[in-house]
Simulated scan of single mutants.
Amino acid sequence: MRSASVRVFAAMALASMWSLTACAQSPLGPETGKVSFHTRSADLGVGYTWGQGILTYGDRTYPFTIKGASAAAIGYSSGVSVGKVYNLNRVEDFAGTFWALTGEATVGRGVSGVLMENDNGVRIRLDYTRSGARLAASPERLTIRLVKGAASAKEASKPASSSTK
C-alpha cells in the first residue's frame, strides 16, 4: 500500500509541475514563431554582444542581425540560442530593441535561458548553449534588425521532387 501512495504522490507532483509550466507560459501570449541564432559576448564590466540568426514566421524565414550591450559582466562566451517567439502579429514588429535580465556563469560550457521583450510586445524565450568563460548578472539591451530583401519561403528551398500539393 505504501508503494502505491508513493506512486500517486509522484504522479501528482509531476502533474502539478506540468501545470505550473503550462501556466507560466500563458502570460507570454500565443506562440507565433521560432528563432535560432549564434552570438558572441565580450565583457569587462560593460559588455558587448553581437551575432546573426533566423526568424521562422509563417512559412518564411527571415535572417537578422543582433547586437547590444550589458552591464556588470566579465569574460567572453559564444554560443547557439534557440527559442520561441510570442505575440508577433507582423514580421515588422520583430525588429527593434529587446530588453532582458540575464544571468550567466559559463566556465568551459554552460546552458541558460532568458526571456526578452521589445517595445512592440514581442517576446522571445531562449535556451542558450554557451562556451567560454563569462560571469554576468545584468540588464541587457539587444537590437535586432531584419536583413532587407532576404526573406525566403521554406518551400522554395526544397527540391522540386519533394513538394507535393
Rank of each mutant, 00 (worst) to 15 (best):
120 N>A: 15
90 R>A: 12
107 V>T: 13
43 D>Q: 11
46 V>Y: 10
113 G>M: 07
56 T>P: 00
109 R>F: 13
66 I>D: 04
92 E>D: 13
73 A>L: 02
68 G>P: 09
103 G>V: 15
63 P>N: 13
121 G>R: 09
41 S>Y: 00
124 I>A: 11
68 G>Y: 09
107 V>C: 05
74 I>H: 02
42 A>G: 09
62 Y>P: 08
108 G>T: 10
60 R>V: 00
75 G>Q: 05
71 A>D: 00
119 D>T: 07
59 D>Y: 08
53 G>H: 05
58 G>M: 09
96 G>A: 05
46 V>A: 14
120 N>C: 04
107 V>G: 08
62 Y>A: 13
75 G>M: 04
50 W>R: 14
57 Y>R: 03
93 D>M: 05
41 S>M: 10
96 G>F: 04
87 N>C: 12
98 F>H: 01
72 A>I: 04
85 V>S: 01
124 I>V: 15
92 E>A: 15
83 G>D: 07
87 N>H: 06
91 V>M: 05
96 G>Q: 01
112 S>A: 13
49 T>V: 13
91 V>A: 09
124 I>D: 03
112 S>R: 10
100 A>D: 14
116 M>E: 13
99 W>N: 06
109 R>K: 09
89 N>I: 00
61 T>N: 12
49 T>L: 10
105 A>Q: 03
60 R>S: 14
76 Y>F: 14
53 G>C: 05
44 L>I: 11
90 R>W: 02
70 S>W: 00
100 A>Y: 00
104 E>G: 10
